[in-house]
């Protein structure tokens, strides 16, 4: 919501999340198959994955600070927030759930992240058009953004039940 007022910012966050998610999904799969299962410490799964995601996000932040300070300045707080993004953790968990190989775990991470980026960019384009609309006073700003997000998710309800 905060980042998606400009398409360039939304794309920036999307790319960062894709990078984080692909890396995290594969690393968590590796951790799961080579560490947790032999030690049958399955229950450590969630903590382990969060740790991995945090490491990867830190690494991305370093890279981004070094290479595109403007994007870093704009994303600001939202970059570390990826660690708390439940979708990232969910995908990491799913990647290890379905008994799929390392390669499919990576692809699942990548696919989920690309989906996330697409939705983010679509939403940013939508909000950029709303800037030009003559929205009544009480609905301006975040209100209209939340309503649009609501209708957008309404559209996704159509996929309910897709096997």
């Amino acid at each position: 919501m905060g980042v998606s007022n400009r398409i360039t910012n939304a794309l920036g966050l999307g790319v960062a999340t894709t990078f984080v998610l692909t890396l995290a999904a594969t690393l968590s799969h590796l951790l799961h198959t080579f560490v947790l299962i032999p030690l049958n410490a399955e229950f450590l799964r969630i903590i382990g994955f969060i740790f991995i995601i945090a490491v990867v996000v830190q690494f991305t932040e370093l890279v981004m600070r070094r290479h595109s300070p403007l994007l870093h300045q704009v994303l600001g707080l939202y970059l570390p927030l990826i660690t708390t993004n439940c979708a990232v953790l969910a995908v990491a968990l799913l990647a290890t759930q379905h008994k799929n190989t390392l390669f499919s775990a990576m692809w699942q991470g990548f696919g989920a992240a690309v989906g996330f980026t697409l939705v983010l960019v679509l939403f940013a384009a939508l909000r950029e058009r709303l800037d030009r609309a003559d929205i009544p006073k009480p609905f301006q700003g975040a209100a209209i953004a939340f309503i649009t997000a609501g209708i957008f998710s309404l559209a996704f309800m159509g996929f309910a039940g897709v096997t």
Binding site: F19, V63, M64, R66, H67, S68, P69, L70, Q73
Partner: peptide, 19 residues
């Protein structure tokens, strides 16, 4: 590959200056 890709993204000028 991703690492170097990101590296190429940043140009030579001191990065703080661009901002």
């Amino acid at each position: 590959f991703i690492g170097t890709g990101l590296a190429r993204l940043g140009n030579t000028k001191n990065h703080e200056d661009i901002l």
